[in-house]
Design a protein around this nucleic acid. Structure first.
Length: 850
RNA sequence: GCCCUCGUGGUGAAAUUGGUAGACACAAAGGACUUAAAAUCCUUGCCAUUUAUGGAGUGCCAGUUCGAGUCUGGCCGAGGGCACCA
C-alpha cells in the first residue's frame, strides 16, 4: 500500500509557476476558433480578497477551463475597480497617498488570486485608477458630450452628508447612502448628467433579447425603467393667479368623471406664487421632513395645502374641483401634478377622506349593479364604466383607456403619452479619488471642453485630503488653467466610479491600445461577453449603466455594431456564516471561539458564553468572516474550490462550514491514495481478454453527466459526480482490470475533474506520464446505454417492484416476465388486466379491477 | 401595498419531456479495527414486532392524469426587489 500523502503546497505551487511560465492562459485573436469571453465582476481593491471573491472567481474559472478544453478560444481577464471613497478615507486615516494604498492592495490581492489557481490572462490586467485607463474615459465623456448625451443642469440631488458627495438615485437605498449609510439630504446643485433616459425604451426592449439572463434581474430592471402608458391632460384653471392651465399625466384618463381634486408637487412652478405665503412655506417644510425614510413612507400620511384655484374638468366643464399642493406628488415624474380620482386610486382615496372631498364611483366590477358605490377603499380592478356620461358602458381598463384618449385627442384636451420612471444618471462626485471630468469654465461660468490635445486631465498628486469638501477645489495650481491663451477654471468634480465599470469589459479586449479605449478589430472578435458572473446586488446599478454605455457608444456611430455588453449573466449567491455574540452583545469572530463540550466558549476567556446567531452573509461588521488566505494556506486551493462549489447550487447562498472544508481536504487525500493504486495497476501492465465493460460504461456516463452539469451551471452536482466517481473506482479497483482500458478511462475521468480541481488533476495526469490536459472527452454513444434497464412495475399506479431486464423490451415480453415472476405473480394471478400503460425502457403500469 | 422567487430527512441538497423521491455530502447514533484514543471503514429517513414485506411521505387543500416534488387553482409560510411613479 502506497501511503504517500498528497502535498498540496508543492503541487499547487509547481503548477501555478508552470502555468505562468508557459503563458497558457494568454489569449489572442484566432479567427479559426470560436471565442468565449468569460468575465467575472472585477473587485474593488479593498485590501484582501474575501470568500465572496473566492466563490465568484472559482465559478468563472470552472467555466473558463471547461470551455478551453472544449476547444474555445477563451478570454478570461481580471482587473481592478480602483477608484472610490475607501481609498480616500484610508489614505486620510493613515496619511498615505490613495494611489499607494490602492496599488499595495492590488498587489496583495493579485497574489491571493494567483494562489487560487485561476486561469486568468494576467497580461490583460487593467486598473481603472491608472492614467492609461481613465484617459480613454475622458475621451468617451467628450464623445458623449458631442453627441448630446451629456449635459449639465441644476437639480435637486441626493446629498450624502457623510461622504460629502452627490449620489445617483440608484445609489440611495432606503433613503440612505449605499456606502456610508447616512440619511440622504435634498440639495440643489449644478451637476453633470448622462442622458440615460433617452434610451429608456431601448433598454427595456433589449431585455427581451437577453435570453441567458436570470429573469429576476430582468424584472428588476424592467421595474426600474418603469414604463407606463397614459395620457397628458391640460386642465383649465380659475382663480386669482395668472395661471390658465395645469398639465397632468395619468394612466387612467377613463376615470376622468371621478375627478375630485388636483394635486401639485410643492416644487411645481406654480409654487413661486406662494413664495411669500408663510403657511405654504411651513407646509413645504413639513413635506420635506416626511421625506424618504422607510418609516415615513410606511406611515405615509397624505397632507395637502389648499389653494384658492379651481380646476375645470375638461370633459365635464360644469365641474370645478379644488387645487391642492400635496406631499405625495413628485416633481420629477410626469408634470409634477396629479389629477385625483379617489374612488379608484387608494392614495387619492386617503387624501379625499382626509379633506372631505367627493368620492364618485365611475367603475363597477362586472358582478355589481349600476348602483355600486366605492366605500371603505378604492376599487382599482377591472369592470364597467358608470356615471361617466358618454364613456358609460366601456370596459375598463383595456377598452376604456384607449377610447378616452382617442376622444381627448380629438377634442384637443389631451394626448397619448408614455412615461418612464428612469431618470438621468447624475455622474458628478465631489471627491478626489476618481476620474477627472475633462471640462472647464471661463470667467462667466460658460462651459468648455478640454481640447483633445490637452488630454488626459491628470489627477493631481499631493493634495490635501483633509480639506472639508472636495480636495480638488483646494488645489489652485491644478484648477487654474490656460486654453489657447484664455484663463479657465477646471471642473473639479470627478466621475462616479460606476462610469469606470461601464466599459472595462471593452478595455479587456484591447488593454494596451494607446489612442482609444479599444480597437475595433479586437472588440469585433471578442465582444460581447459570453458569460458574465457576479453578485445580484449589481442587478440595477452596474448592469444598467453598462448596457446604457454600450448604447451610448453606438449612438450616431456606424462602426460600433454592439448593442448589449453581456450575452449571458449569472448571479451567484453569497457566502454565509453563523454569527456570534458574547455576553455583552459584542460581535465575536469565529477565530476567537472554540467548541467545548456542547457549547461555544471564548478562547481567551472560557467563562464567557457565546450566543450563536443566525447565519448571515459574511461581513466585517458582524465579524463572521473567514479569511480565504488562511484557508488556502491550511487546506490548499483545490480543497477550497471543491468545498465552495460543493454545498449549494452556485446561484444560492452557501453556508461556510469548517467541517465541510475539512471533509473536502480529506477527500482529496483519499482521492490521491486511490490515484496511486490506479497508477500501480496501470504500471503492472495487466492484460485481460475480457473487456472491462462496467468501467467503460461508467466513464462514458460520467462524461455525459458532468458535461451536462457544466453546461447548466449545476456545479454542486459536478462535485457530487466526482464523489460518485471516487466511490465507484474505489470498488472497481479491487476487480480484475486491464491496464490499457484503465489508463484510457482514468485519463478521461481526471480531465473531467480538472475544471474544479485543476492542480490536483494536472498532477495526476502528469504522474501518469501525460504532459498537458488538452481535450475534453466525448462520450461513446454506444456505451451510454445499458443493455439492461430497470423497469418499474406498477399495479394501479403503485410501484410494486423493479425488474432489471434487457433494453428495448416490448410490452408483451415484459408482461410475460411479470406473470412468471414470483414476487409479482401474486398481484396479477387470476386477475383481469383492464388496461396497460407501457413506457418503453422505463415503466409498466397494470390497471387491475380488484 | 405592488412585483419576483422559493417551500423535499436533523442539515446543505439531487431528481431528462410528468414515470424508482432523497443521488452526493455534513451532523448524529450504532457497529468494526485498536490496550485505549485519534484516524479509517461499515450500517441507519419515518411508521408497522424484522436485513424480508407493507404503509404513509416533497408546506396545506383541491383538481387534471394510469401516474404529480414536477402541471392547474386556492390557501399558508420564507426570502428578495420596488416604494407615495399619478
Amino acid at each position: 500500500m502506497n501511503s504517500e500523502r498528497y502535498n498540496f503546497k508543492t503541487v499547487e505551487k509547481k503548477w501555478q509557476e508552470k502555468w505562468q511560465k508557459s503563458k497558457i492562459f494568454a489569449s489572442k485573436i484566432d479567427k479559426s476558433k470560436e471565442k468565449f469571453y468569460c468575465l467575472e465582476m472585477f473587485p474593488y481593491p479593498s485590501g484582501k480578497i474575501h470568500m465572496g471573491h473566492v466563490r465568484n472567481y472559482t465559478i468563472g474559472d470552472v467555466l473558463s477551463r471547461y470551455k478551453a478544453l472544449k476547444g474555445f478560444n477563451v478570454l478570461h481577464p481580471m482587473g481592478w475597480d480602483a477608484f472610490g471613497m475607501p481609498a480616500e478615507n484610508a489614505a486620510r486615516e493613515n496619511k498615505l497617498d490613495p494611489k499607494e494604498w490602492t496599488n499595495k492592495n492590488i498587489s496583495t490581492m493579485k497574489d491571493q488570486l494567483k494562489k487560487l489557481g485561476l486561469s486568468i490572462d494576467w497580461d490583460r490586467e487593467i486598473s481603472t485608477c491608472s492614467e492609461d485607463y481613465y484617459k480613454h474615459q475622458q475621451l468617451f465623456f467628450l464623445e458623449l458630450y458631442d453627441k448630446g448625451l451629456v449635459y449639465r443642469k441644476e437639480n435637486y440631488v441626493n446629498w450624502d452628508p457623510v461622504d460629502e458627495t452627490v449620489l445617483a438615485n440608484e445609489q440611495v437605498i432606503d433613503g440612505k447612502g449605499w456606502r456610508s449609510g447616512a440619511v440622504v439630504e435634498r440639495k440643489k446643485l449644478n451637476q453633470w448628467f448622462f442622458n440615460i433616459s433617452k434610451f429608456s425604451q431601448e433598454l427595456l426592449d433589449g431585455l427581451d433579447d437577453l435570453k441567458n439572463w436570470p429573469n429576476k434581474v430582468k424584472v428588476m430592471q424592467k421595474n426600474w425603467i418603469g414604463k407606463s402608458f397614459g395620457c397628458e391632460i391640460a386642465f383649465k384653471t380659475e382663480g386669482d393667479l395668472p395661471v390658465k392651465e395645469i398639465k397632468c399625466f395619468t394612466t387612467r384618463p377613463d376615470t376622468l368623471f371621478g375627478f375630485s381634486f388636483l394635486a401639485l408637487s410643492v416644487d411645481h412652478e406654480i409654487s413661486k406664487y406662494f413664495a411669500k405665503d408663510k403657511k405654504f412655506q411651513e407646509f413645504k417644510k413639513e413635506c420635506s421632513k416626511t421625506g424618504t425614510t422607510e418609516e415615513a413612507i410606511a406611515i405615509g400620511e397624505k397632507i395637502g395645502f389648499k389653494t384658492n384655484m379651481m380646476a375645470i374638468n375638461p370633459i365635464n366643464p360644469s365641474q370645478k374641483v379644488p387645487v391642492f399642493f400635496a406631499n405625495f406628488v413628485l416633481m420629477d415624474y410626469g408634470f409634477g401634478a396629479v389629477f385625483g380620482c379617489p374612488a379608484h386610486d387608494q392614495r387619492d382615496f386617503d387624501f379625499a377622506k382626509k379633506y372631505s372631498l367627493d368620492i364618485k364611483t365611475v367603475v363597477k366590477p362586472d358582478n355589481e349593479g349600476d348602483e355600486y358605490e366605492v366605500k371603505d377603499e378604492a376599487y382599482s380592478g377591472p369592470g364597467i364604466l358608470i356615471n361617466s356620461g358618454f364613456l358609460n358602458n366601456l370596459k375598463a381598463p383595456e377598452e376604456s383607456i384607449i377610447k378616452t384618449i382617442d376622444i381627448l385627442e380629438e377634442r384637443n384636451i389631451g394626448k397619448k403619452q408614455i412615461n418612464f420612471r428612469l431618470k438621468d444618471w447624475g455622474v458628478s462626485r465631489q471627491r478626489y479619488w476618481g476620474c477627472p471630468i475633462p471640462m472647464a469654465y471661463d470667467e462667466n461660468g460658460n462651459v468648455t471642453k478640454i481640447p483633445k490635445k490637452d488630454l488626459p486631465v491628470k489627477l493631481p498628486e499631493n493634495v490635501d485630503l483633509n480639506f472639508k469638501g472636495n480636495p480638488l477645489d483646494a488645489k489652485n495650481d491644478w484648477k487654474n488653467i490656460n486654453i489657447d491663451g484664455k484663463k479657465y477654471l477646471r471642473e473639479t468634480d470627478t466621475l462616479d466610479t460606476f462610469v469606470c465599470s461601464s466599459w472595462y469589459y471593452l478595455r479587456f479586449c484591447s488593454p494596451t491600445n494607446q489612442n482609444y479605449g479599444f480597437k475595433k478589430e479586437d472588440i469585433d472578435y471578442w465582444m460581447p461577453v459570453d458569460q458574465y458572473i457576479g453578485g445580484v446586488e449589481h442587478a440595477i446599478l452596474h448592469l444598467l449603466y453598462s448596457r446604457f454605455f454600450m448604447k451610448a457608444l453606438g449612438y450616431k456611430n456606424d462602426s460600433f455594431k454592439f448593442n448589449e455588453p453581456f450575452e449571458g449573466l449569472f448571479t451567484q449567491g453569497m457566502v454565509c456564516h453563523e454569527t456570534y455574540k458574547d455576553e455583552n452583545n459584542n460581535w465575536v469572530s469565529p477565530d476567537e471561539i472554540e467548541f467545548v463540550g456542547n457549547e461555544f466558549k471564548k478562547k481567551n476567556n472560557p467563562s464567557q458564553k457565546i450566543k450563536v446567531g443566525p447565519s448571515e452573509s459574511m461581513s466585517k461588521s458582524k465579524k463572521n468572516v473567514i479569511d480565504p488566505e488562511n484557508i488556502i494556506n491550511n487546506y490548499g486551493a483545490d480543497s477550497v474550490r471543491l468545498f465552495i462549489l460543493s454545498d449549494s447550487p452556485p446561484e444560492k447562498d452557501v453556508q461556510w462550514s469548517e467541517q465541510g472544508m475539512v471533509a473536502s481536504y480529506k477527500f482529496l487525500q483519499k482521492l490521491w491514495a486511490l490515484h496511486k493504486k490506479i497508477k500501480d495497476k496501470i504500471n503492472n501492465n495487466i492484460k485481460i481478454s475480457k473487456q472491462n465493460l462496467s468501467l467503460e460504461k461508467f466513464t462514458n456516463q460520467m462524461i455525459n453527466k458532468i458535461t451536462g452539469n457544466l453546461e447548466n451551471f449545476n456545479y454542486n452536482v459536478i462535485i457530487a459526480n466526482i464523489y460518485e466517481t471516487y466511490n465507484f473506482l474505489n470498488k472497481e479497483i479491487e476487480s480484475n482490470l486491464d491496464s490499457e482500458t484503465l489508463k484510457k478511462n482514468y485519463k478521461n475521468i481526471v480531465i473531467l475533474f480538472s475544471p474544479a480541481i485543476p492542480h490536483f488533476a494536472s498532477e495526476c495526469l502528469n504522474d501518469l506520464g501525460y504532459e498537458e490536459i488538452v481535450k475534453w472527452p466525448i462520450p461513446d454513444k454506444k456505451l451510454l446505454q445499458e443493455e439492461k434497464v430497470d423497469y418499474v412495475v406498477q399495479i394501479n399506479g403503485k410501484k410494486r417492484l423493479i425488474l432489471n431486464e434487457s433494453r428495448d423490451m416490448d410490452q408483451e415480453s415484459l408482461l410475460k416476465i411479470i406473470k412468471s415472476n414470483k414476487l409479482s405473480e401474486k398481484y396479477v394471478k387470476d386477475k383481469s388486466i383492464d388496461k396497460i400503460i407501457f413506457v418503453k425502457n422505463r415503466l409498466i403500469n397494470l390497471l387491475i379491477n380488484e
